[in-house]
Design a protein around this nucleic acid. Structure first.
Lengths: 292, 292
DNA sequence: ATCCATTGATACCTCAATTGAATTAGTTGG
DNA sequence: CCAACTAATTCAATTGAGGTATCAATGGAT
């Protein structure tokens, strides 16, 4: 039993005439009659009552006609959607990103991507840099925004932003009076930063910055999420070195100051090499076009 | 392209292994591989990426899997429902009836039928006796309740009620004082009755009742619907001879009186001979069981 | 009542599509 | 480099879908 027999039956129900229904399907009447008979046999149900003069649907036939039309329509939709997804015109793109990107990078990217692929649903998932690689490899993500650290050779990386680190602190903090800050100003400060396990590249950049100046930094708290860091700083529990891109917009209870010889973090869009979601290509093209 | 290939594809997507998917379908791997290839060719879309080591779905494949499951489920539902309708356990029964039956007969019948066939939707349509026969013949109705007048030989009739005529009038009417009323009491009254075109049998019974007593009745208004007749009587525009079954319940502004030698109307359930809606049989059994 | 036209069913044939068995080709891991 | 595993390919056999010719039943016309 198959959709072909459903198509035959719909033709018969619409013409109520075996000969004309067969003609509409570009076939002759005998095999057409046999297919209808097979359908009825498989269902175990009489769908049409036929005399040699007239054909009419039984109650079961009328119901089956409605249902068949629905099934056939859904069948067509399934085929059409598969083609659209293959062309990347619809479907889903699972984009992961570290929290640093949530402030400015992701909103901007989502807005631009939505303009060129309005029918692709963007599934956004915040995650830590450490998790991103494994989720790309396990195909749980189609693409991800993270720091451009060297990664698995199976992963393509497209750097598109140089993000300088800056210092954030509460407005009342003594260092807020300075125009810019160097590592030597921070030797006595409580620092708040994500642990190396969560954001290895960022952590390495921070420790490297201090090490170059011969300063031993004092790390006080190690939250996982960037947002928590900002909240702790605002509460006066310490200061933090964060990428400039998150200092955008209204940070009412925080001030940022540039660092002398500020280390820069490269931000990249990463994808699994050989990934086959056609919705990804335009996203790569997008970041390529804005590469510094 | 057919549901068979969809079934194959779903098996492949669930096992991600050509050999095991084929085995699950009780077939060997080569023809199975070819069917998947055919499906992809017909769709023009790559659904799975295969290396000799692993198989995984493309984005289009993932979408097509979801859609295919939906299509196949709906397909099964269509088949199941056709079988259920054929057994009369579900579906629709289009029951027509004259307005006289709306007061007591139809509510009672609907309630009893609903108890034995809860999943059959009853489509109820009020109509005039004159229309009922043609709607049965044109298969616009599965069954109908009307007077048991002789009808087309294609129509089966099951009489199940003897409905005596009685007189209705406003409470203030002079005849309301009588225990029972004869034709001779009504010679000077304004009568309200449906025309012969609308309800021939009832009209014939009324005129016959007067003719037998040598009285020439005075028909004043001829509405189509029974309800209108009662409303006109209540307003004091005349009196009417109506079947007893409509005098049930609360007729606040009307009184009914028996007629001497009251004519009786036979009420019947009619169906088209050879009609094939299995939901009808239990309805016929129902009225059979309450035949006087 | 008889004949004829119409319509769906049946018998038989042909051919294409599907299947299965055997084999090949390409990867991966040791 | 070999062994294993897996999907693709080849080819013969079978299934089944469609076509032609024909039959049987029904309803209308004469």
């Amino acid at each position: 039993m198959d959709t072909r027999q459903m198509r035959y039956f719909v033709a018969l129900a619409e013409t109520l005439h075996f000969g004309r229904a067969a003609a509409r399907l570009n076939m002759t009447q005998p095999p057409f009659s046999r297919q209808i008979a097979n359908l009825e046999r498989d269902l175990g149900v009489t769908l049409v009552n036929r005399t040699s003069r007239q054909v009419h649907l039984t109650a079961a036939g009328a119901r089956f006609l409605e249902d068949s039309r629905a099934v056939l329509a859904q069948f067509e939709i399934a085929c059409r959607d598969a083609r659209l997804v293959a062309k990347g015109m619809t479907g889903e793109l699972r984009l992961g990103f570290m929290m640093h990107a949530a402030h400015r990078i992701v909103p901007q990217m989502v807005s631009r991507y939505g303009a060129i692929r309005p029918d692709v649903r963007l599934s956004l998932s915040e995650t830590t840099p450490a998790e991103i690689e494994q989720k790309l490899l396990s195909r749980d993500l189609d693409a991800a925004i993270t720091f451009a650290d060297p990664s698995n050779s199976q992963i393509d990386s497209h750097t598109f932003l140089q993000d300088r680190l800056c210092l954030v602190m509460p407005p009342s903090h003594g260092l807020a009076a300075l125009r810019s800050v160097g590592p030597e100003d921070l030797g006595q400060e409580d620092l708040i930063a994500a642990s190396a396990a969560v954001a290895p590249t960022l952590r390495a950049a921070i420790t490297g910055y201090f090490a170059a100046a011969g300063i031993v930094p004092r790390f006080r708290f190690e939250p996982q999420l960037q947002n928590t860091i900002l909240r702790l700083v605002a509460t006066g529990l310490g200061v933090a070195l964060v990428p400039e891109s998150i200092c955008d917009g209204h940070m009412l209870d925080l001030v940022a100051r540039p660092l002398v010889n500020a280390p820069t973090m490269e931000v990249a869009l990463k994808t699994l090499r050989g990934q086959d979601n056609p919705a990804v290509a335009p996203l790569i093209a997008l970041v390529r076009s804005q590469t510094p």
